[in-house]
C-alpha cells in the first residue's frame, strides 16, 4: 500500500471522509461518559467544593489549545519547507479548532476564577500567555484570510505559526518561572498525579473526547478546504463525483 499517495489532497479527500465517523462517534460517547464520571462519580472536592468540576472541561481545553498550536506549527512548517499543499491545508484547518479550545479555556478559567479567586481575570503569567496564544491563533487565521493567493497565505501563516510556537513552553512553565496566582500542575508525565483517581479519570476521558472531536472536525474542515481550493482540478471532479 503506497501511503505517499495520500499526501495529495485529491487522494486524501475520500480517505478523510471514510475515517471521520471513526473519530466523531467515539468522541460523542466519550463526552457523555466523561460528563457522567465528572458529575456523578467524582466526589466533591474538600477545599473547592463542586466548582472544581469546571476543571473537567477547562484543563482538556487548555491542553488542546497548546497541543493543537504545536501541531498547527509543525504542519505549517512542513507545508512551507516541502511545498506540501495538504500539510498547509491541515494547518489552516487546525487553527480554528485550536482557537476555539483556547477561547474556551480562558472563559471556563474565568468561571472558575470568580468564585475561587474573587475575580474573573488577573494579568497573571499563565493567563496572559494563554491570551497571547489566542491572539496568535487569531493572527494566523486573519493573516491567511487577508491574502488572496492560498500558497502565499500558507507561507505567511507558516512564519507566524513557527515564530509563535515559542509561546507554548512559556505557557507550560509560566507557573514555575513566575510567582503566579494560577495553581501549579497537578498532572505530570513523570511524577505521580496529585489528584484523586476518579477526578483524574473524568479529566482523562474528557481529554480523549476532546482529541477525537478535534481530529473529526479538523478532517471535516480539511475536506471543505480541499473542495474550495481544488475545485478546478479535473481529476478531483472524477473523485468527488
Amino acid at each position: 500500500m503506497n501511503l505517499y499517495k495520500y499526501a495529495s489532497p485529491v487522494n486524501f479527500y475520500p480517505l478523510a471522509g471514510k475515517i471521520i465517523p471513526w473519530f466523531a462517534i467515539p468522541a460523542a460517547i466519550l463526552f457523555a461518559v466523561g460528563l457522567y464520571v465528572g458529575f456523578f462519580v467524582a466526589p466533591t472536592d474538600a477545599q473547592q467544593g463542586d466548582v472544581y468540576r469546571i476543571m473537567f472541561i477547562h484543563v482538556p481545553a487548555a491542553w488542546m489549545g497548546m497541543f493543537l498550536y504545536v501541531l498547527m506549527a509543525i504542519y505549517a512548517g512542513v507545508g512551507w519547507a516541502f511545498n506540501a499543499r495538504l500539510s498547509s491545508m491541515m494547518a489552516t484547518s487546525i487553527s480554528i479548532t485550536g482557537a476555539s479550545f483556547t477561547f474556551l479555556s480562558l472563559v471556563t478559567g474565568a468561571f472558575w476564577g470568580k468564585p475561587t479567586w474573587g475575580t474573573w481575570w488577573v494579568w497573571d503569567a499563565r493567563m496572559t500567555s494563554t491570551l497571547i496564544l489566542l491572539f496568535l491563533y487569531v493572527g494566523f487565521i486573519s493573516l491567511q484570510a487577508s491574502i488572496d493567493d492560498p500558497r502565499r497565505a500558507d507561507r505567511a501563516g507558516a512564519v507566524l505559526a513557527l515564530v509563535g510556537v515559542i509561546n507554548v513552553p512559556i505557557i507550560y512553565y509560566s507557573v514555575q518561572w513566575w510567582n503566579t496566582l494560577h495553581q501549579g500542575a497537578t498532572i505530570r508525565i513523570l511524577n505521580k498525579p496529585t489528584i484523586a483517581p476518579k477526578m483524574l479519570a473524568a479529566m482523562l476521558i474528557m481529554l480523549a473526547a476532546c482529541w477525537l472531536y478535534s481530529i473529526a472536525v479538523v478532517l471535516v474542515r480539511l475536506r471543505y478546504i480541499i473542495l474550495e481550493r481544488e475545485q478546478n482540478a479535473a481529476r478531483f471532479a472524477e473523485v468527488t463525483a
Binding site: V51, R53, I54, I57, H58, A61, T108, F111, W112, K114
Partner: peptide, 9 residues
C-alpha cells in the same frame, strides 16, 4: 459558574 462554563463549552 459550573453550568455557565459548560454552557460556553
Amino acid at each position: 459558574y459550573v453550568w455557565g462554563a459548560y454552557l460556553f463549552a
